[in-house]
Amino acid sequence: MSDGGPGVGLRIGVLALQGAFREHVATFRRLGADAVEVRTPADLTGLDAVVLPGGESTVIDRLLDSSGLREPLVAALAGGLPAFGTCAGLIVLSAAAEDGRSDQRPLGLIDVTARRNGYGRQVHSFEAPVQLDADGDPMPGVFIRAPRIVRVGEGVEVVGTLDGEPVAAAAGGIMVASFHPELTGDDRLHRRFLDRVRVVRAVAA
């Protein structure tokens, strides 16, 4: 854990049911945050924010039920707990998912529609630079059987684009990305999320 960094004093829970959760934990720890793995309802206690990582969204959806996490997580998010969802996590946080399983239940915390595997099967997975809104420098984007953001609702801010198409979005304390910033070492989106968490905390206080 570093002495400084934008995450100091923040406790970030990373949903650790399945997928690339260790990489998010490592990234937030590098930024000075107290990052912990979330597997049970008790792990939600005392969090300043929660991260829904990449993985298989149908599996994470199922495990939310069997672990008993769905209700307390939904309650915490409804109470304003900030959340960052990447890839599968985007689908879980979205308002609607196309081409998923009929029993998959997105939480509806950000008004975007996501199309599962919207860029195609694995042979169509790719790397491409993502343009962030304000910055001049693009960040590396790793898109793996990625969901495609096919609709962005009113009041949702587009924070990253690829060929002019939205690939990262945010509204209040909720941020989503269709790619994997946790795999590249470029932590700019993680930093932006921490900024949002601080704003939410300041407003609450």
């Binding site: 650790a16 049911l17 399945q18 997928g19 690339a20 959760f21 260790r22 990489e23 990449g54 993985g55 298989e56 599996v59 890839c87 599968a88 694995q122 997975s125 790719f126 790397e127 790793v142 898109f143 793996i144 059987r145 994997h180 795999l183």
Partner: peptide
């Protein structure tokens, strides 16, 4: 991209 898909399967 190739090893990344395996990363997404972890814990599964």
């Amino acid at each position: 991209v190739k090893s990344g898909l395996a990363e997404m399967l972890k814990g599964g």
